[in-house]
């Protein structure tokens, strides 16, 4: 295994593109090193991107925030403006692992690890996050929901890497939230995750909503039917129940060591409803 720590995106991309065997990007390393230690992967090259300044910084852009793909969770949580605008996203990132993990783990890494259960991903999908990708053929930008295509699999081509994530400007009267279910209070992989972002009009009617679920299918899901259950309503109990039903209906989970299929389907609805309630309170407060 070779270790490189380039200082520019171009160098990183050419290293990744030029690698003969398996090449991996190292940001926080909290998934990569676990896989290395367990001999699950044996990369020929590891490219540490933390010396690339733009990948380590958060910048305000058009009322939104561009978050370097290697910004650690702890750094994101300490950014008061991002937290005020997108509390659901920041809380979701904060749920990834322990305090120690937060010192290293990044949104970019959480996304590119490709886990259907990644905590930050439903929240970033709900928030309408756009992902910037650099590669041998230049840069491109895609919605967050288009990155993960299967467990451990992403839509990134060889030589490509995520450089930043863009959280758009927060509309007025909107709020977001993310909740996950784990058996303990910390340190577990989500058994179900639910991210909700919604916007109200002045009369309190929901005008826009995005609902995303994690750990209930092979990829995180953006559930249009769940959003539709909210849009046009005042988010009364009936709308919330419709949301829960739509969220449960969208699930296509498996039985595994972390939970049963039935459990995931039921709890997805519960969490979507609870997350929507929090998002609603936040929207009313904005």
């Amino acid at each position: 295994m070779r270790y490189e720590a380039p200082e520019t995106i171009d160098t990183a991309v050419s290293l990744l593109a030029g690698a003969g065997g398996d090449a991996r990007v190292l940001a926080g390393g909290t998934d990569l090193l676990v896989q290395l230690r367990a001999d699950m992967i044996e990369p020929e090259l590891v490219v540490d991107v933390k010396k690339i300044q733009s990948m380590r910084t958060i910048t305000e852009e058009n009322g939104g925030f561009r978050i370097g793909a290697a910004v650690a969770g702890a750094e994101l949580s300490e950014h008061p403006k991002v937290k005020a605008a997108w509390p659901g996203v920041v809380e979701a990132v904060d749920l990834i692992g322990s305090t120690q993990i937060q010192g290293r783990a990044s949104m970019g890494g959480n996304l590119c690890n490709g886990s259907p259960a990644a905590d930050s991903v439903p929240a970033m999908i709900a928030a309408g996050t756009m992902v910037s990708i650099a590669g041998p053929n230049g840069e491109r930008e895609v919605p967050a929901e288009e990155i993960i295509v299967g467990p451990g699999k992403t839509s990134l081509a060889k030589g490509e890497m995520v450089t930043s994530l863009f959280l758009p400007a927060r509309p007025a009267r909107s709020g977001d939230a993310y909740l996950r279910f784990i058996p303990r209070t910390e340190m577990d992989i989500a058994v179900v995750g639910a991210g909700v972002s919604l916007t109200l009009d002045e009369g309190g009617t929901c005008t826009a909503a995005r609902v995303a679920l994690g750990a209930v299918a092979a990829t995180p899901l953006l559930v249009q039917e769940a959003a539709d259950a909210l849009i046009g309503t005042k988010l009364d109990d009936a709308a919330m129940e419709a949301l829960a039903a739509a969220a449960s209906a969208a699930c296509n989970p498996i039985d595994d060591k972390r939970g049963t299929k039935d459990f995931r389907i039921k709890v997805a609805g519960v969490l979507a409803r609870r997350a929507a309630q929090i998002a609603l309170e936040r929207a009313r407060g904005n």
Partner: peptide
């Protein structure tokens, strides 16, 4: 060796981390 127990906790550049999840090379 998987970041789950915290027994290897150290500070790197004033951040609390699990040293089992940091490469030695990154300490440069």
């Amino acid at each position: 060796a998987s970041g789950d127990c915290g027994a290897c906790s150290v500070m790197v550049n004033d951040r609390l981390v699990c040293s089992c999840l940091v490469l030695g090379a990154e300490a440069d």
